[in-house]
């Protein structure tokens, strides 16, 4: 359903240097699939996600969703950013209703929809709080609710749990899986954590260091709910780590 074909992207610095960020990326994603991107820092995985979101344009290649090429940001794709991205001047509820306002959904209706999604992430009590009153994990949960409220086909997540502590992170991963299993979105998730990738994904895409190419794709054939400490999970972790380790070494050298 999401089809990435021959994507290339080069950045031009002000001094005129060219940096090849993405080179010949091809990937087919099935409907309702959970795919993780993993790779060394600066390998272009965020750039690819931003291209899919419509925030950047590739130099060449096409991305289609259900056969429709991407031309810019659109309601069929939701995105959760790595940084905290809630609008600080809006309450939690008003953050979630934002995209519905843009679609001109009537007020009562959009607040009902927003409340349902707030309940989904377990934050109903905080509907009238402002973002600065929330913890980091809560902010990202609201951001997820805000991205889901449009009912997108694809949910793009750029290291959404990178800045929260380990315990909260585990809980957020479980909640995300619950939402994903309920709503069955196609989910694209960037992470730096091999553990996170093995726990969450149907498939894990490993990127090479700059220029970003797809190095290897691992299919995680484990039933859910997964056991983080099982022998099988460890095996996947090991093969992912060794694939990734070579790339990180390259990136540092």
């Amino acid at each position: 359903m999401l089809s990435i074909k021959n994507i290339n992207k080069t950045y031009h610095s002000e001094e005129g240097d060219e940096v090849l960020a993405l080179s010949d990326i091809n990937l087919e994603m099935k409907n309702k699939e959970f795919v993780c991107f993993i790779g060394p820092s600066g390998c272009g995985k965020t750039t690819l996600l931003r291209i899919i979101a419509g925030l950047e344009t590739p130099d060449s290649g096409t991305i289609t969703i259900h056969g429709e090429p991407i031309k810019g940001p659109g309601p069929d794709r939701g995105m959760v950013f790595q940084e905290y991205s809630l609008f600080p001047w809006r309450t939690v509820l008003k953050n979630i209703t934002f995209s519905l306002e843009m679609k001109k959904v009537p007020k009562g209706q959009r607040e009902d929809i927003a409340r349902q999604h707030l309940e989904l992430v377990g934050l109903s009590k905080f509907a009238d709080s402002y973002p600065h009153e929330l913890s980091g994990g809560m902010k990202q949960r609201v951001a997820i609710a805000r991205a889901l409220v449009n009912d997108p086909n694809v949910l793009l997540m750029d290291e959404p749990f990178g800045a929260v502590d380990a315990q909260t992170r585990n809980r957020l991963q479980q909640e995300l899986l619950k939402i994903w299993e309920r709503d069955k979105k196609t989910l694209l998730f960037i992470t730096h954590s091999v553990d996170e990738a093995v726990y969450l994904a149907d498939r894990v895409v490993v990127f090479t260091s700059r220029p970003g190419r797809i190095k290897e794709i691992f299919k995680i054939d484990l039933p859910r709910p997964r056991d983080r400490t099982s022998v099988d999970a460890n095996m996947y972790r090991e093969s992912l780590l060794s694939s990734l380790g070579a790339e990180i070494k390259n990136a540092i050298d």
Partner: peptide
């Protein structure tokens, strides 16, 4: 920038908006 991009992803794309 992240707020502007959040807005764009959420359907707020016209300059005036």
């Amino acid at each position: 920038r992240v707020l502007v991009e959040s807005g764009k992803v959420l359907g707020c794309v016209r300059n005036i908006d």
